[in-house]
Amino acid sequence: MIIVEICLGSSCYVKGASNTIEHIRNIIDQHQWNDKVQLKGAFCMGGCNQGLCVKIDDTLIHERSILDLLKKIETTIGGLLS
């Protein structure tokens, strides 16, 4: 099971982290990854200066724009599952 943790600490929240939740769910649905990927909430990961933060199986990724973040999440999970 791949664990995707979305940072919902105050800094990321203010940058729009909660908006990403629904989009990430859509990505998971689109690729039918529901049995393979679990979405979780997380607290501040310390990457506040680098944009929005997400951990995929303990690897931290961060992007400044929501679109870039979503793309990176999609490619990372895709990579892990191939």
């Binding site: 919902l8 105050s10 929240y13 982290a17 939740i21 979780k40 909430g41 997380a42």
Partner: peptide, 14 residues
């Protein structure tokens, strides 16, 4: 207010 992130975290079973 921070009720929204707290509720989002609750909904993600955190």
């Amino acid at each position: 207010s921070w009720i929204v992130p707290v509720i989002e975290l609750i909904k993600l079973d955190t």
